[in-house]
């Protein structure tokens, strides 16, 4: 029995744990917390196939009595087998706990702070947004951050009427007066998430909006009044509203 668990059972169990995690995330609409939406179809299809194959394989595996002799493995000492069994059980329990007990969650500002906000333009050079005699309605945090990164100044942005949502993150250079409305940009999966953000000049912002909470900000762009922030242009908020985390927290 133990030999069967070590040679086949633990793999099939881990397949089932992974399949259950993926299927639930897909049904709950939360798979995009971990991977880019373009992979959702492929991931779900492979999970369904793997689940079916695992169940069929469990049914078709040679039984213990007919298994003898037809397929040899390196002999395992009793002590080694005990250790391996304990390690495998621990790994399966830990994987189940992480994949199926921990609630799914987005990345926090802790990761954003470590990844140099606005280092990336978010997307290729070709799809940088262009603001032509418009107010930029419909622009996301990523679009505005891309414009600011290209050096758009307050005159160029005079007619802009930004209306952005994102999570709150302190500007490391002026943490009391300036915060970022930030989002993560995903290329493939959450591992490659790059934070982008629009700086907002609002002294004492911490009293109303804790770091990591989600806000919707409207206002207009001005020369950044902060003396220590590295950002030349900042959003002067007309209104900052607390909102719930949106269903699709990442941008692409």
């Amino acid at each position: 029995m133990r030999e069967r668990f070590l040679s086949h059972g633990r793999g099939l169990l881990l397949v089932l744990v992974g399949v259950a995690a993926i299927l639930w995330l897909a049904v709950a609409g939360k798979l995009a917390l971990y991977i880019h939406p373009r992979y959702i179809e492929f991931t779900v299809v492979m999970a369904v196939i793997a689940g079916v194959v695992a169940i069929v394989a469990a049914a078709l595996l040679p039984r213990a009595d007919e298994h003898e002799g037809d397929h040899e493995h390196a002999p395992r000492s009793r002590r080694r087998a005990t250790l391996l069994t304990a390690a495998s059980v621990a790994l399966i329990v830990a994987t189940t706990a992480v994949l199926l007990v921990m609630p799914p969650s987005t990345l926090t500002s802790g990761t954003a702070a470590q990844r140099d906000i606005n280092a990336s333009a978010g997307g290729g050079a070709g799809d940088a947004p262009v603001l032509v005699a418009g107010d930029g309605s419909g622009f996301t945090v990523k679009d505005w951050a891309g414009l600011l990164r290209q050096g758009a100044d307050e005159q160029y942005l005079a007619d802009a009427r930004p209306d952005v949502t994102g999570f709150v993150m302190a500007d490391p250079d002026d943490p009391d007066d300036v915060f970022y409305v930030a989002r993560f940009v995903i290329t493939c999966c959450a591992v490659d998430a790059q934070p982008v953000g629009v700086p907002v000049y609002s002294p004492g912002w911490r009293d109303a909006h804790p770091v990591d909470s989600w806000v919707q900000v409207t206002g207009r762009f001005v020369a950044n009044p902060s003396t220590s922030s590295m950002q030349a242009v900042a959003l002067e908020p007309a209104d900052v509203t607390s909102i719930d985390e949106p269903a699709d927290p990442y941008v692409y």
Binding site: I35, T43, P104, S105
Partner: peptide, 10 residues
Amino acid sequence: ITLSVSVLVE
């Protein structure tokens, strides 16, 4: 947890 699960799910 989020990052590890992300690598795994991907």
